[in-house]
Design a protein around this nucleic acid. Structure first.
Length: 274
DNA sequence: TACCAGGTAAAAA
DNA sequence: TTTTTACATGGT
């Protein structure tokens, strides 16, 4: 059956990041389809006109599928805004239909971010892959990300054996065992979400910003500390000069109201630009 | 071989 | 208060 995604929608552009940094068993793009767990069920998404096709048995997952594929992003509003920016305009036009995916589960989002702190995304993905294959759930094709309960019971030594630093292992176990209602964060304003997250050990501004951008899909999330985003700003706007974090944060002001999509288009633009 | 890579917290100044 | 350092792995 068809799950509709608003036009414009380009399936391949939207799942590009799950291919670029190496195979990801949690977000598995293969054979022209995409496999992952949503709400505890493994789904297979196949690009189709006006959306994606799923098994009739997955009818109940239509809304989670739409949310995962960024259906809620206002691409029309963003395109109109981008057209007023001579630098952003061609980047956005060249990536028409890119809908940033939203990591469906808050715990998965945070643990994935912790693994990606400081190290290259390829290194992070290699470590996360081992984590998933040790603590996650094997599906027919994809893997379910490890549950909070499962990682709460892990030990620092076991996670270290997968490539975690001692600190990251401690952060991950503490997060899993914390009392914080991660799902409840969706009810709060951006700055309140960030305040709750940053109070946890190992979660700083960068991790909180990406949580707002890639889990909650907040329109004005802007990960100013992100090295990739700073490189993209340098490449497209600053003649190659890397901005400081403070400069990158100030730079985001011009995208007010559309910072999340601006950041994600600039990052994708950096990867696929000629 | 080094050094850098989509950070963070703790030590040192 | 601001600056410096340790951290672990993968790619070049």
């Amino acid at each position: 059956m068809l799950v509709e995604i608003p036009e414009p929608f380009d399936f391949e552009l939207s799942v590009e990041r799950y291919r670029t940094f190496g195979p990801d068993p949690v977000n598995l793009a293969m054979d022209g389809a995409f496999h992952r767990f949503l709400e505890g069920s493994e789904v297979r998404l196949v690009p189709a006109p006006c959306g994606v096709a799923v098994s009739p048995a997955d009818r109940a997952l239509a809304v989670p599928v739409q949310r995962f594929l960024g259906a809620e992003f206002d691409l029309d509003g963003f395109s109109a805004f981008a057209a007023t920016d001579p630098v952003l305009s061609p980047v956005v036009a060249g990536l028409r239909g890119f809908r940033p995916t939203l990591t469906p589960d808050p715990f998965e989002m945070l643990v994935s971010s912790i693994t990606a702190q400081q190290v290259s995304l390829r290194a992070a993905l290699a470590i996360r892959r081992r984590l998933v294959e040790r603590y996650g759930g094997r599906g027919a094709v994809a893997w379910a990300f490890p549950s909070r309960e499962r990682l709460a019971g892990a030990s620092v030594e076991k996670l270290r054996a997968l490539g975690f630093s001692t600190r990251k292992a401690e952060y991950t176990i503490a997060l899993a065992g914390s009392e914080l209602d991660l799902g409840g964060l969706a009810e709060l304003a951006d700055d309140e979400v960030a305040a709750h997250l940053v109070a946890l050990p190992g979660i700083g501004e960068w991790t909180a910003d990406w949580f707002l951008a890639r889990h909650l899909g907040r329109p004005d999330a802007w990960p100013a500390g992100d090295l990739g985003l700073r490189k993209a700003i340098a490449r497209f706007y600053l003649d190659g000069d890397d901005p400081s974090v403070a400069e990158a944060r100030a730079f985001g002001e011009r995208f007010g109201g559309h910072r999340n999509l601006a950041a994600q288009y600039l990052l994708l633009g950096l990867r696929v630009a000629p």
